[in-house]
C-alpha cells in the first residue's frame, strides 16, 4: 500500500520506438516506483533491451532510433533538449549482459565513474571505491590487490566490478540488462543478493529471460512480448494469477 503513495521516478506513457522502419516497442505505458525492483521478462527479441536503453538514452547512439510518446524522469522530459545524454546516463546507470571492465586496474575502473562526476581528491576517491566495492560484494576478494589489472578477475568478479563502477557514479536508477546471462551458476545467487541489498538505496530495473529469477528478485514485473507490454503489475500477481493468457503461457513455460 505504501508504494502507491510515492510518486513514480519514471513515468512512461504511450511509448513507441522504431529502429529505421521496424517498430520495436508498441504503446508502452507504465510507472517505475523508487526503491523497488522492477523486472521485465519476456522471450528474446521482445524488446526488453531496447526499452531499457531508451531509459538511459543509450539509444541516442543509434542514428536510426526514433520514438514517440512520453518518458518522464522525476516529472521532467527525459529527452528534453536541455538535458544532456551524458548527464542522464550518469544518473541512470547500466550493467550490461557481458561484463565490460576497462583495461585499467580494479581501482581505476571504479574511480573512473567517480572522476567523471568531478571528484578529484584521492582520499574521497578511496572512500568511494571502497564503498562501491563493498556494495557490489567484491571488496573482500580484491582489497589486497586493488591496483592490479582487472583482466585477472573471473567473469563473475568482473560483472560485480561493473556493478561497483556503476555505483561509484552515484546513480538514482540502476538498470541490469540480463546481468547473469554470461555468468556461471554459482555467481547468479551472489548477484541476486546484491540486487536485494541495493534495493534500499536505489531504484532497480532488472531485465531477464529467466522467469524464476524475475520472480525471486523483483517487486513489480512486466511481461513484454513482441514489443507489447502484455501485463504489468505486482510480481506475485503476474506469476501466480496472470490476467492475460499469453502471460500465463510464458510464466508456466509454454511459450
Amino acid at each position: 500500500m505504501q508504494s502507491q503513495k510515492t510518486d513514480p521516478i519514471l513515468h512512461i506513457h504511450d511509448l513507441n520506438v522504431w529502429y529505421g522502419k521496424s517498430q520495436i516497442l508498441k504503446n508502452l505505458t507504465f510507472d517505475v516506483l523508487p526503491r523497488q525492483v522492477t523486472a521485465f521478462i519476456g522471450p528474446s527479441n521482445s524488446g526488453k533491451t531496447t526499452l531499457v536503453r531508451c531509459l538511459n538514452r543509450l539509444n541516442d547512439l543509434n542514428v536510426n532510433f526514433r520514438y514517440t510518446g512520453k518518458i518522464l524522469y522525476k516529472d521532467e522530459n527525459l529527452y528534453a533538449p536541455q538535458l544532456k545524454a551524458a548527464k542522464i546516463a550518469q544518473q541512470i546507470g547500466m550493467v550490461f549482459q557481458k561484463p565490460i571492465p576497462f583495461r585499467k586496474s580494479i581501482y581505476e575502473n571504479v574511480a573512473y565513474s567517480a572522476r567523471l562526476r568531478g571528484i578529484k581528491q584521492s582520499d574521497q576517491l578511496d572512500t568511494i571505491v571502497e564503498e562501491s566495492l563493498r556494495k557490489a560484494q567484491l571488496w573482500d576478494e580484491v582489497y589486497k590487490h586493488l591496483h592490479t589489472s582487472s583482466d585477472a578477475l573471473s567473469n563473475g568478479q568482473q560483472q560485480r566490478l561493473c556493478i561497483a563502477r556503476a555505483l561509484a557514479g552515484d546513480p538514482e536508477i540502476l538498470i541490469f540488462d540480463e546481468p547473469c546471462e554470461q555468468l556461471d551458476a554459482a555467481e547468479t545467487p551472489k548477484l541476486e543478493a546484491i540486487v536485494q541489498n541495493l534495493k534500499s538505496h536505489y531504484t532497480l530495473i532488472f531485465v531477464t529471460n529467466k522467469r524464476r529469477q524475475a520472480a525471486r528478485v523483483s517487486d513489480v514485473a512486466g511481461f513484454l512480448y513482441n514489443g507489447e507490454l502484455v501485463e504489468f503489475g505486482q510480481t506475485e500477481q503476474i506469476f501466480t494469477n496472470p490476467i492475460d493468457k499469453r502471460t500465463e503461457n510464458y510464466v508456466t513455460g509454454r511459450l
Binding site: 538511459n56 543509450l58 547512439l61 544532456k84 545524454a85 551524458a86 548527464k87 542522464i88 546516463a89 550518469q90 544518473q91 546507470g93 547500466m94 550490461f96 557481458k98 565490460i100 576497462f102 573512473y112 565513474s113 567523471l116 562526476r117 561493473c162 563502477r165 556503476a166 557514479g169
Partner: peptide, 16 residues
C-alpha cells in the same frame, strides 16, 4: 562497440 557503450552508460561525454 561495447566498450564505448559501457563508457557512455557511466555518463562519459563523447570526447572523453
Amino acid at each position: 562497440i561495447s566498450i564505448r557503450e559501457a563508457a557512455f552508460a557511466l555518463g562519459a561525454k563523447r570526447w572523453r
